[in-house]
Design a binder for these strands. Structure first.
Length: 801
RNA sequence: GCGGAUAUGGCGGAAUUGGCAGACGCGUUAGAUUUAGGAUCUAAUAUCAACAGAUGUGCAGGUUCAAGUCCUGUUAUCCGCACCA
């Protein structure tokens, strides 16, 4: 009788749910394991095979850990605020609430069909009042501490969609949605002062078990650099100081010009003294027209205009140097002004060559006739720095600058403050009231959640205002402080908000007194293992680490980093080797796979298809290989015999496989774990029979991968209880080795023959046996044996000339 | 441009960390079974060669008794950052 996955899978999913076997127990005596996967955005398209792979990894780890006696928290939820839902709602007229509920329903049933061992009693939805109440609560705490603030910014605005767009949605200066030209618009928006945590976020990385690549990407994102600020006097101004930032203050003697960003305020301030203001203005207009893409493209061909009327004075030698404006200097980094050292900076070099500016070498080691020398070297032409190396020179010059009061040590970050706003409906309302008398006032904590009002028209308003701005009953309120009529903030929070603290809510999802109970926080502690996509390791992870560190500083959480370990799965590519996309028509629907082959096959395949951390193309025929594997496992019941200990024939194979699977799962080497079980299966069929003890062990280690078929077999053979509640099997290291082993005999490193010998054979004996072999004897006859080696358990190598 | 990673049969990928290259799976070929197809089972399957044997882990060198693995150089692909001073 074949295995009927259709009925068995449904049956066991229901039984597991009924018995609550995957419910995590708060504050239990058992050791805890908190495994976290990135909760999905419930899109209308339904689940993707990528989700299955992303969740299957920690699913296997979680099921195994449960069987090993851990109290496992393996939760799931939905990150449901966001634009796609809202856009769909606008298009169809169905309310986003309804769309979200439908999509969550769809995702939930799909996830359940795959048999994931999530604790469904803890499911969260970021759009529910009892969840976003605490998102707002955290925001207000930040507001209280001055970390949430408002500031003017130039935003990308699409006049056609009437919406403010992120940089990602406005690439190339065109709106991603309607492709009209984006205009820059000044607007007051909310920011979170994440830069205040830049150092903590950087230092925190040290003790964490993240993939090296993840650490690197986070470091790059934070982008810390150390250097110095230096003030240059400006000739032609009223005693104006032009402050620059540099990482190489030691090259100050090589400065031959300065460059400021086109937006630099000094231009407007002294506009009447700049003789060529027309040219300067013309250049600035030209830059403003350039899209971000254009501005980053032309690396070699520098453009710029000299400011006629203002010049800089090099503070170390009093030399007068020209000042240029050029768009290779950005207003958003450092001070928007640089000192240019063409001899030792490629950009400055290109610029100097183009504009015919002097190039003065201050570091030995390169040939500045040909190109800028950016390496290290001894200082020359630098007065008191001459002869010093880079580190010493930097130290000395900073000392000098500080003494003279013309500069100081400085640190810069690439990371900017987090623009925390959306002019959209489907997001968490920002709980702030604007009062004419009191300014910005927080909605009192006891009034949270500030509910997102139900509206009929959730399309964005004109002029980039949030749809909430049109609802008078929402906007008009009284000031919580003075009681005067006031207006509510109408921006909502960005998508990233809800996901910045969701791992904390799983710990105590229904608490209405706090975001999570302190005792439970103490018990569950950090997420032990967080798996997700590489695309989320910078923004999402840094944002949530920031929120967590903020809560830690507030004393609201008992540990300072949210995630102890972070891994990432590789993409599943389409069968054509291309990234899956609807437009390419190469998307694989997990539902169809479950329909055709069953959930166990789908789960096994996504883990078997290749290295978990690498991208691999989907192969329809390889899926069939996993189907065969599952069917052959079921077929073991046809050759089942009695026996309550491992048989001599299979004992070492079973121990070896248990060892391999046990270790591989922890290292996310799921593909080789499955391969090892396939190998064992082949060994068993070669053996012709399997006894009950052996079958128990086999289906136990297979259970995390293929829980349904193994559970069905467990029941059918009356092994007792439910396998999901079962105990993991141990292996005995001593029994993983065979008595007799095959060794290879090489002559001059080439394999000549293979011999069976006792596993504990000594070198002398092994070599003697090898030399006694007729093939070897013949090969070395008449030759001079130079060297004889025995590598334990592996080979004998005889070097003969 | 900078940083990181990868490169192994027809395909996805293994390789105890310097010790039999190609585990496991797919595909292919032959056979069995079947009215047929499908499914299943058995065997073969890196390349060249009838065999002996030789060659073989992107390419070129090197170290070693022994190299996919270590060293030097080089090429290609992918990812991240990108005029960050």
């Amino acid at each position: 009788m074949g295995y009927d996955f259709k009925s068995a899978e449904k049956k066991w999913q229901d039984k597991w749910e009924e018995a609550g076997v995957f419910h995590a127990e708060d504050c239990s005596e058992k050791p805890k394991f908190y495994g976290l996967v990135e909760f999905p955005y419930p899109s209308g398209a339904g689940m993707h095979v990528g989700h299955i792979k992303a969740y299957s990894g920690l699913e296997v780890v979680s099921r195994k850990r449960r069987m090993q006696g851990y109290n496992v928290l393996f939760p799931i939820g939905f990150d449901a605020y966001g634009l796609p839902t809202e856009n769909y709602a606008i298009k169809t007229g169905i309310h986003p609430r309804k769309v979200t509920d439908m999509n969550i329903e769809k995702f939930s049933s799909q996830l359940k069909r795959v048999g994931f061992s999530f604790d469904w009693t803890r499911v969260i939805d970021t759009t529910q009042e009892n969840y976003y109440k605490w998102t707002q609560w955290i925001f207000l705490k930040m507001f209280e501490k001055g970390l949430a603030f408002r500031d003017k910014t130039l935003v990308n605005y699409c006049p056609s969609c009437k919406v403010v767009l992120s940089n990602e949605d406005s690439q190339g200066g065109k709106c991603d949605i309607c492709h009209s030209d984006i205009v820059q618009k000044s607007k007051d928006v909310w920011y979170l002062r994440i830069t205040e945590y830049a150092d903590k976020l950087l230092e925190g990385l040290n003790g964490l078990d993240y993939l090296p690549n993840v650490i690197l990407q986070q470091k790059n994102w934070i982008g810390k650099s150390t250097g110095a600020f230096v003030d240059f006097d400006v000739k032609g101004s009223d005693d104006e100081k032009l402050r620059i930032y540099t990482t190489r203050p030691d090259t100050l003697f090589g400065v031959t010009f300065m460059v400021i960003a086109p937006e630099h305020p000094i231009i407007d301030k002294y506009a009447d003294r700049i003789a060529n203001m027309d040219a300067v203005e013309g250049y600035r207009k030209e830059c403003a027209k350039k899209t971000e893409f254009e501005r980053t493209q032309l690396v070699k061909d520098k453009t710029g205009v000299r400011i006629d009327g203002l010049s800089g004075i090099n503070p170390v030698n009093g030399k007068e140097i020209p000042i240029y404006i050029s768009d290779y200097v950005m207003m958003g980094y450092g001070t928007g002004a640089i000192m240019a050292v063409p001899a030792h900076d490629e950009r400055d070099y290109d610029f100097a060559k183009k504009f015919g500016i002097d190039i003065i070498e201050v570091l030995k080691g390169g040939d500045i006739e040909k190109e800028a020398y950016t390496g290290e070297g001894e200082h020359v032409n630098s007065e008191f720095l001459n002869g010093l190396n880079k580190a010493d020179a930097i130290e000395k010059i900073i000392e000098f600058l500080a003494e003279k009061g013309i500069g100081e040590k400085g640190v810069q970050y690439k990371m900017k403050d987090w623009a925390f706003n959306r002019q959209r409906y489907w997001g968490e309302p920002i709980p702030i009231v604007h009062c004419e008398h009191c300014g910005m006032v927080a909605v009192p904590y006891e009034e949270l959640p500030l509910k997102l009002p139900k509206v009929e028209n959730f399309a964005p308003g004109s002029d980039g205002e949030s749809p909430l701005a049109k609802i008078d009953s929402y906007v008009n309120c009284t000031c919580p402080k003075c009681g005067a009529p006031a207006k509510r903030e109408t921006d909502t929070m960005p998508q990233w908000a809800g996901s910045s603290w969701y791992y904390l809510r799983y710990i105590d999802p229904n608490n209405d007194k706090a975001f999570a109970d302190r005792e439970k926080l103490n018990y569950w502690g950090r997420v032990d293992w967080y798996n997700g996509g590489m695309e989320h390791v910078t923004r999402h992870m840094i944002y949530s680490r920031f929120w967590h560190k903020f809560l830690y500083d507030l004393g609201e959480v008992p540990y300072d980093e949210p995630y102890a370990k972070r891994t990432a799965q590789g993409l599943i590519l389409g069968p054509d080797g291309e990234k899956m996309s609807k437009s390419k028509g190469n998307v694989v629907d997990p539902n169809e796979v479950v329909d055709e082959y069953g959930a166990d096959v789908l789960r096994t395949y996504v883990l078997f298809m290749g290295d978990y951390e690498k991208a691999a193309p989907w192969s329809k025929s390889s899926v069939k290989g996993c189907k065969r594997f599952i069917d052959r496992v079921w077929g073991l019941q046809d050759i089942l015999v009695d026996g309550d200990t491992y048989s001599k024939e299979l004992e070492s194979s079973i121990h070896k496989t248990i060892k391999k699977v046990t270790e591989d799962i922890e290292n996310m080497k799921f593909n080789t774990a499955i391969a090892a079980m396939m190998t064992l299966l082949n060994v068993i069929y070669d053996n012709g029979k399997i006894n009950k003890a052996e079958l128990k062990a086999f289906i136990t280690i297979l259970n995390p991968f293929a829980p349904h078929v193994t559970e069905e077999m467990w029941e059918k053979n009356n092994f007792g209880g439910m396998l999901a509640n079962g105990k993991w099997v141990d292996f005995d290291e001593a029994k993983c080795v065979d008595d007799e082993i095959e060794i290879v005999v090489q002559i001059n490193g080439k394999v000549k023959t293979k011999l069976m010998v006792a596993a504990d054979i000594e070198a002398d004996e092994a070599i003697a046996i090898a030399k006694a072999d007729e093939v070897i004897a013949a090969a070395i006859a008449g030759k001079n044996v130079v060297k004889e080696l025995y590598v334990k358990g592996r080979l004998v190598n005889i070097v003969a000339k």
